[in-house]
Computed example of a mutant assay.
Amino acid sequence: MAPRPTAAQRRHAALRSALDEQLAALGAPPYSGPDLPEPVLSACARALLRAHRGGLTPHRPAVRAVVRATLAELAARHPGQALEVRVPPYGAVQCLAGPRHTRGTPPGVVETDPLTWTALVVGEVTWADSVASHRVSASGVRADLSAVLPLWPRPDGTPPRASDPADSH
């Protein structure tokens, strides 16, 4: 009997499938880069943002896979329970070192929509602009994620762009 895939393997398989489906919806060839978690995740995030910018509805499984994987990556890189990051309806994680809470609303909460979150984690928009434009709700003393986002540098090495007020997610 074959061993049961781990949660990380299942997430990666879902992400690969979602990436190829999103690329197909964009009329692009399937992903041919390295089959490693970070490059696949980054490529999927960028593909769904490209679909959104092109006036297409991003592929829902791609959005779900990207949000869940990037939240897991954030929690793995910055463990703790001082801040809860919520991206409804797809997920929430606790991260950052600090006071631990066990019930009710944590001392710090960040909440945003899936496309804004995706743009933040890949450096398409800045934390400050997203908060100022009310696309991110952040409360609590540890609710500033500007030091930990984006999760990956932009491919061209440029800093995140300022948000365009007309670009609503």
Rank of each mutant, 00 (worst) to 15 (best):
M1F: 10
M1E: 14
M1L: 15
A2D: 12
T6N: 10
A8M: 15
A8H: 12
A8F: 15
R10W: 14
A13R: 15
A13I: 13
L15R: 01
A18D: 08
A18T: 07
D20C: 09
D20E: 13
L23D: 03
A24D: 10
A25F: 15
L26F: 05
L26A: 08
G27E: 08
A28I: 08
P29Q: 15
Y31F: 12
S32D: 10
S32G: 10
G33T: 13
D35A: 09
L36W: 12
P37S: 13
V40A: 03
V40S: 03
L41Q: 04
S42I: 09
A45R: 02
A45S: 07
R46T: 00
R46W: 06
L48W: 04
L49S: 07
R53N: 14
R53V: 13
G55V: 15
R60Y: 07
P61D: 06
V63K: 01
R64Y: 07
V66E: 00
V67R: 01
R68E: 06
A69E: 02
A69N: 03
L74Y: 00
H78P: 00
G80W: 00
V85H: 00
R86T: 10
R86P: 02
V87Q: 06
P89A: 13
P89L: 10
G91V: 07
G91R: 03
A92D: 04
V93I: 08
V93K: 01
G98E: 01
G98D: 03
P99L: 15
H101G: 14
H101W: 12
G104R: 05
T105H: 14
T105R: 14
P106T: 03
P107L: 14
G108A: 15
T112W: 01
D113T: 10
T116G: 04
V121Y: 05
V122W: 05
G123R: 03
E124K: 08
E124N: 11
V125W: 07
T126I: 04
T126L: 06
S130M: 04
A132N: 02
A132Q: 03
A132Y: 01
V136C: 04
V136H: 00
S137N: 14
A138E: 02
G140D: 02
A143Q: 00
A143T: 03
A143P: 01
A147F: 09
P150K: 04
L151H: 00
W152R: 07
P155W: 05
D156E: 04
D156N: 06
G157A: 05
T158Q: 11
T158S: 11
T158P: 03
P160N: 06
P160C: 05
R161H: 09
R161G: 09
S163E: 07
S163A: 15
D164L: 06
D167Q: 12
